[in-house]
Simulated scan of single mutants.
Amino acid sequence: MLNNVRVVLVNTSHPGNIGGAARAMKNMGLHELVLVDPVRFPDPEANSRASGADDVLQQARIVGMLEEAIEDCVLVLGTSARDRRIPWPVLDPREAADEVLDRLEAAETGPIAIVFGREDSGLTSEELQRCQYHVHIPSMPDFSSLNLGAAVQVLAYELRMQSLQRAGAPTKMHKVETTALPNEIPATAGELEQYFQHLEQVLVEIGFHDPQKPRQLMPRLRRLYGRIQVNRMEMNILRGILTETQKAIGVKASGARRR
């Protein structure tokens, strides 16, 4: 769906910012870049800052005027950090992402452009008037100007997050241990029971637990561990801690400690 989203950079003065924008785009699944009258491009610094997004730079189209970059677009959003004299529909990045995806899901046939202005002055009033919506990133009022690559990253990130959510795709990756996958299997009830026996034994040995005056200690610990799903790797770690604790206090190995 995001293949129909076009990033337009107007009169960019520093090629490194073009590379940074290309990197931000590729990170979030955007690929169409149009450059309006760039000061320096192509340039090795753009490729250096792209950090692997060279294909986005190679496919970038260069035009002389903003009108050429957006003439086939069904929706144009212009980014702006400043208040303008003429009232205009203003969206924050999340609202902008919703608007873009709503249009794309409605099967609009043409591309949608998100336009970013010059590093020092942004888009002119005339350029902003060619956009149906203005997008304002709610940065601090006393330091509102973002680096161009960072601004592209913010909009591209919101687009990707919203598109993943609408597709029912996960928006975060489960952290996988670097060890073998079998270690991710949850500990069995039997393994947990052996652990609780081992744990109770060690707590008695170090004087923390008195079986004659239990104070509901073990049921409370069982409830604590019941709130999490311990896997086999974690169980091995916990049993190892208990074993090393017994070694430190000079207790010989017992059957309750066998893994």
Score class of each variant (00 low, 15 high):
137 I>V: 15
34 V>E: 09
131 C>P: 08
197 Q>L: 12
45 E>T: 11
239 R>F: 05
75 L>V: 11
173 M>Q: 15
216 Q>M: 08
35 L>P: 04
174 H>L: 14
41 F>N: 02
58 Q>K: 15
184 E>R: 15
20 G>V: 10
217 L>C: 01
239 R>I: 08
98 D>T: 14
135 V>E: 03
119 E>Q: 06
149 G>R: 04
217 L>G: 00
160 R>E: 07
69 A>Q: 09
173 M>S: 14
10 V>G: 03
136 H>W: 03
185 I>M: 10
142 D>T: 14
162 Q>R: 10
54 D>A: 14
242 L>T: 12
154 V>S: 05
24 A>T: 11
191 E>V: 11
67 E>L: 08
132 Q>C: 00
155 L>K: 05
38 P>Y: 03
95 E>Q: 14
149 G>S: 15
246 Q>L: 15
133 Y>P: 02
117 G>C: 05
144 S>C: 11
79 T>V: 03
24 A>V: 01
247 K>Y: 13
245 T>M: 13
80 S>W: 06
202 V>L: 07
42 P>K: 01
52 G>T: 07
209 H>R: 01
148 L>D: 01
212 Q>L: 13
98 D>H: 13
42 P>R: 01
122 G>W: 00
70 I>G: 03
122 G>K: 01
92 D>N: 14
190 G>D: 15
31 H>T: 15
45 E>I: 06
64 G>Y: 00
199 L>Q: 09
36 V>A: 07
16 G>I: 07
179 T>H: 12
55 D>H: 13
170 P>V: 06
161 M>C: 07
245 T>F: 04
31 H>I: 06
11 N>T: 08
117 G>P: 07
141 P>A: 09
166 R>Y: 09
250 G>P: 02
256 A>C: 08
160 R>F: 05
161 M>N: 06
26 K>Q: 14
17 N>V: 10
229 Q>I: 09
51 S>M: 14
163 S>Q: 06
135 V>W: 04
132 Q>H: 12
108 E>G: 13
250 G>R: 03
132 Q>G: 11
245 T>P: 01
50 A>V: 04
